[in-house]
Simulated assay, not measured.
Amino acid sequence: MSKPELDSDGFQKVKSKRISKNKPTKIPRRDIEFDKLDLDIDVDKTIRRIYCAVDDLRLSSYLEDVIKSVSSILKDRQIVEIVCLGLGHIGECNISKHQLALLLCLRDHCKPSKVLVHDPIFYKKECEVLKKLGLEVVLENKEGGYVISDEGPTLVYLPHCPKQLTNNFLWSNWGINLENCVLVCNSFHSLIDNQPSRILSETVPYIVKIFPHTSEVTLTNNFKFTDIFNDTSIHYFTKENLEQIESDFWVKGDKPTYENTEEFITSLMVKQLNI
């Protein structure tokens, strides 16, 4: 079997099954990145480059569309927190820098009381960068198991994250309180349309179950770098839709487990590497 083709950012190029004029979708080669030693990156230079990425976004119609869509969903409600999982190596990867730039722009617009970030592959110096940018770094790998606030909307940002992480997040918040979630991640519609329903039902059942009750805003991929926000949508769950669901729908089982996947970094994997 030939080795996967990697680009300069350490991302695996994956050709879409659909016939499309767009560039191939990129997914993080997390097994490769995860095995790297902790690198001593230049903190100040990294921050300058991130602010350059912020300037790129502020001049773009893409950010304008994102903010307009989020504001339309929220109406008069105020975001109380932003949770971001899976940014990747912000010190090395251009895609990660721009995804972080979107997070910073959303923070500046929404003005939440806190912004939490986590990725099990962050270098120590990358954590230092994030803290200097005013973000709170969560060190524990809860595998997407963050429970959102019930005091107001939480914006959950999972940029190009594995579907298992999104599935775990939904499992952790399974219930009517999903009305307090604005979820920015890979498109549910795209996932459902492009993968066999039987496999999805077995591997990510909570995405499959909530999909019919989800409102999705598809974002036009018009940023100047088309491989950064491709396949990204905004998902939300209206109170009206959720209240129409029968109560037994919300019964959930044990925490999901996954087999034969390299894209999803579990807490056990981290623990084994730290022994």
Results as ranks from 00 to 15, higher is better:
Ser72Asn: 13
Ile73Asn: 06
Lys75Ser: 14
Asp76Gln: 10
Arg77Thr: 10
Ile79Arg: 05
Val80Asp: 03
Glu81Gln: 15
Ile82Trp: 03
Gly86Tyr: 02
Leu87Gln: 03
Gly88Leu: 05
Gly88Ala: 08
Gly88Ser: 10
Gly91Thr: 06
Gly91Ala: 08
Asn94Met: 14
Ile95Lys: 03
Ser96Arg: 03
Lys97Ile: 11
Gln99His: 06
Gln99Lys: 04
Ala101Glu: 00
His109Gly: 05
Cys110Met: 14
Cys110Phe: 06
Ser113Ile: 13
Lys114Gly: 00
Val115Arg: 00
Leu116Val: 04
Phe122Val: 14
Cys127Met: 14
Glu128Asn: 06
Glu128Phe: 04
Glu128Ala: 09
Leu130Pro: 03
Lys131Cys: 03
Lys132Ile: 11
Leu135Thr: 06
Glu136Met: 09
Glu136Trp: 04
Val137Ser: 01
Val138Pro: 01
Val138Ala: 07
Val138Asn: 01
Leu139Ile: 15
Glu140Val: 14
Asn141Tyr: 08
Asn141Ala: 11
Glu143Gly: 07
Gly144Trp: 09
Gly144Phe: 10
Tyr146Phe: 15
Tyr146Ile: 15
Tyr146Val: 15
Tyr146His: 12
Ile148Lys: 05
Ile148Glu: 06
Glu151Ser: 11
Pro153Arg: 09
Pro153Gly: 13
Thr154Gln: 02
Thr154Cys: 11
Thr154Tyr: 02
Val156Thr: 10
Tyr157Lys: 04
Tyr157Met: 04
Tyr157Ser: 04
Leu158His: 02
His160Pro: 09
His160Val: 12
Cys161Gly: 08
Lys163Asp: 08
Lys163Tyr: 11
Gln164Asp: 07
Leu165Glu: 03
Leu170Glu: 05
Trp171Ile: 01
Trp171Cys: 05
Asn173Lys: 11
Asn173Val: 10
Asn177Gly: 08
Asn177His: 13
Asn177Thr: 14
Val184Pro: 01
Ser187Asn: 10
Ser187Tyr: 07
Phe188His: 15
His189Gln: 11
Ser190Tyr: 10
Leu191Ala: 10
Asp193Val: 03
Asn194Glu: 14
